[in-house]
Amino acid sequence: VGRTGKLKTTSDCMSEYLTEITSDLRLVLLGNIGCGKTSSGDTILGQVSPVSSVTTRSCTLRQGYSDGRSVTLVEAPRWYWNEQTPDEVQAQVFSCVALSSPGPHAFLLCVPVDQSAKTELQAVSALEKVFGPESVQRHTLVLFTYADRLKASGKAENVEEYIASERSDLLKLVEKCGDKFHILEKGEGWREKKTVAELLEKVEQMVKAAGGQCYSCPAFQEAEDKVRQRQLQLVRERRSNRPETIQAGYGGQFHSERQLLPLVEEDISLDDG
Rank of each mutant, 00 (worst) to 15 (best):
G212P: 07
G212A: 04
G212E: 03
G212T: 09
G212L: 09
Q213G: 00
Q213D: 11
Q213L: 06
Q213V: 08
C214M: 05
C214T: 04
Y215T: 01
S216F: 04
C217F: 11
P218F: 14
A219C: 01
A219K: 13
A219S: 05
F220S: 03
F220Q: 05
Q221K: 13
Q221A: 10
E222I: 06
A223Y: 07
A223H: 06
E224D: 12
E224S: 12
K226R: 15
V227E: 04
Q229R: 13
Q229I: 02
R230E: 11
Q231E: 14
Q231S: 09
L232R: 15
Q233H: 14
Q233Y: 05
L234S: 02
L234H: 09
L234G: 01
V235D: 02
V235L: 14
R236T: 10
E237C: 07
R238C: 06
R239E: 13
R242W: 04
E244W: 06
E244M: 01
E244S: 13
E244H: 14
T245Y: 00
T245C: 05
T245M: 10
I246D: 05
I246H: 04
I246V: 15
Q247I: 12
Q247S: 11
Q247G: 04
A248S: 09
A248F: 10
Y250H: 06
G251L: 09
G251K: 00
Q253G: 00
Q253K: 15
F254P: 00
H255Y: 08
S256R: 09
E257V: 07
E257G: 15
Q259K: 06
Q259I: 06
L260F: 05
L260Y: 02
L261M: 15
L261C: 12
L261D: 02
P262H: 10
L263W: 08
V264S: 07
E266A: 14
D267Y: 12
D267G: 13
D267M: 08
D267I: 08
I268R: 03
I268M: 15
S269T: 14
S269P: 00
